[in-house]
Design a protein around this nucleic acid. Sequence first.
DNA 1: GTCTATAATGGGATAGAC
DNA 2: GTCTATCCCATTATAGAC
Lengths: 235, 235
Amino acid sequence: MEDNLKKEAAPSLKTKNQKVDGRRAPKTKTKILDAAEALFSRRGFYGVSLRDIAAEAGVQLALSYYHFGSKEDLFGRVIERRAEENKQGLQASLQEALLVKGSQDVRRIAIIRAFIMPTIDKSLRFGTGWKNYIRLLAQIANFAQDEDYMAIYRKSFDQLVAEFVQALQDIHPEMNEDDVHWCFFFLQAAITHILVESTMLDRQSRGRIHASDLDLIADKMLVFFSAGFSGFQRK
Amino acid sequence: MEDNLKKEAAPSLKTKNQKVDGRRAPKTKTKILDAAEALFSRRGFYGVSLRDIAAEAGVQLALSYYHFGSKEDLFGRVIERRAEENKQGLQASLQEALLVKGSQDVRRIAIIRAFIMPTIDKSLRFGTGWKNYIRLLAQIANFAQDEDYMAIYRKSFDQLVAEFVQALQDIHPEMNEDDVHWCFFFLQAAITHILVESTMLDRQSRGRIHASDLDLIADKMLVFFSAGFSGFQRK
DNA sequence: GTCTATAATGGGATAGAC
DNA sequence: GTCTATCCCATTATAGAC
């Protein structure tokens, strides 16, 4: 994958990919992918036209077809682009959490944190591209799960979830296996909803809380969802 | 509002839509609304064409324009149709919960139950129309919050949420006001996600749990989310 | 690789007969 | 209220010059 991912599109003047102060201007392919990612993440697959994308990217319409083929293919490529890095980040995070020693509570919180922080970090601190990507994933989770191009991604993500669930299960041998699934499901549901950046919380709290304050959200989630698990313990 | 709502596109007698075994065939307007509701709830506003809707409803394309005007207008009417009944159901449910006496835990659970059960009931037991409607609302909450036709609905729903949050606050004078908002936000996020009927849980639990089993979900949610609140109590 | 031009289709919307 | 026919534009997609 030749696109610069980790550091965000990092544009500059000059075209034809000449180096400007050490950075390369984004290639056309990257510009199209970035634009598509941003737009799809806000209005969904059907809510965006290839003209919208070309305009947003500042390139000719035909170039999208030249580089990516059909609209569906482009969408698939947008998903694919950051999928592997995203997955590996979560896996590394889990491995680290498994090293944490301490009480059941401490280890449970470590694993929950390991699940939510990589995503929140990317959304918050890895630049606009990652922020859009995370929003796109969250939106897809709520929506077009059954599309063909999602099959590969889903499979890989489900595998990841299984690893987290297993880790929680290992800490909680006293818990019913299904209940661990339930708890993790509720956690996923909440983070998915939060990452679409709805303005709901802002409105409903009359401005005192902001859904965009993801660091605070992370704190509150840890408290709340760790306590949620404990609801199933006294059995 | 002349469409039959409470009992699902069913009952009544005649008119030019012939009686069939004691039931009146649904009017064209109702057929169009039902079809639009079903399709919008699955593929979103942009993912459905008026031709799709007309075909699904088994009516001529032009009739949609005759009865409802533009596509946006139709969408708005679909939202409107069940909005008032939905809201009143939730309000009545809250009033009943406020009568519950007992420990803090008992009263908290009563209020949480009052929030989730009317929606789950409608989705589960009021017929396909309501099921689709609930899914549509959940999808909108994740998506097109900023569309014009949502403004009225949003305002009314936010008011309702405020009543629930206030009720929880009254039970928990020891809790920080913001934290009550957080807890309720997490609850909303989860139920919203669940009601789009994702197949996620089914897959991830390898078939042992089904997201379509809403009665079981309700039980698990009560345990989990009530316990989540208690995470903020020991402060 | 990038551009212009255009084909081909789909879909929102309307006119007008019945 | 319902139907047929049609307008008209946006959109997907491609051909072909540069």
